[in-house]
């Protein structure tokens, strides 16, 4: 053991029996011995706190109060247990509550999502595509419909920036649904929400 390690060892074992090697080291290093003795003194001082005595009524009062709470718990049944769980800092209970909250929030978002949100999802899936809006569907040019590849989204006129005059085109050969459907079927049975405005 190096001297630095031996020193640390002795300091961390202050107040405990030391090995002959430790004793030899401390004999050679009186300043470390003094430090060890001071630390041991702190331990002795602290041990005096054992002489602090609790009030004599502690036992009676403790039993009475615990009994009282146990009785209330029995009388109030599950409601009291729930209250207990919430006040006793039970980690699993809080975890379950958090999971419920997340579930509730998810449900709320699902119920309040507008029907054309799927279009935005398509848009997100194609990072190169500028923002589009269904409001301008009336500008659709049939020729583009014909030449547009059978992909999810195509534009009517690529010369016009879509964020200025956006036209969203959805063309899938596998789309078997009438235009008043709110679902588009494409590829091997994939679907996406869609709105047809004419």
């Amino acid at each position: 053991m190096k001297n630095a390690e031996r020193k640390r060892w002795c300091l961390e074992h202050a107040g405990e029996p030391l090995t002959p090697e430790d004793e030899a080291y401390l004999k050679e290093h009186p300043e470390v011995r003094l430090e060890v003795e001071r630390l041991a003194l702190m331990a002795k001082l602290m041990s005096l706190k054992n002489h602090e005595e609790p009030a004599p009524h502690l036992e009676t009062r403790c039993i009475a109060r615990v009994q009282e709470r146990i009785q209330s718990r029995r009388e109030r049944g599950w409601l009291y247990r729930l209250e207990d769980a919430l006040t006793l800092n039970s980690a699993p209970v809080w975890a379950a509550a958090a999971a419920l909250a997340v579930l509730g929030a998810g449900l709320w978002v699902t119920l309040h999502t507008p029907p054309d949100a799927g279009v935005a999802a398509v848009q997100e899936a194609d990072p190169g595509m500028p923002p589009v809006s269904l409001a301008a569907v009336g500008d659709v040019q049939p020729s583009v419909v014909q030449t547009s590849p059978a992909v999810d989204v195509a534009s009517a006129d690529r010369e016009i920036p879509l964020n200025e005059k956006p036209i969203l085109f959805l063309r899938m050969e596998s789309n078997q649904l009438p235009h008043n459907s709110d679902q588009l079927i494409y590829g091997n049975g994939g679907t996406m929400p869609v709105r047809f405005d004419y």
């Binding site: 502690l58 403790c62 615990v66 709470r69 146990i70 247990r81 006793l88």
Partner: peptide, 10 residues
């Protein structure tokens, strides 16, 4: 202390 004993009981 009494809370600890109650918690332990529960």
């Amino acid at each position: 202390t009494q809370d600890i004993f109650y918690k332990a009981y529960s």
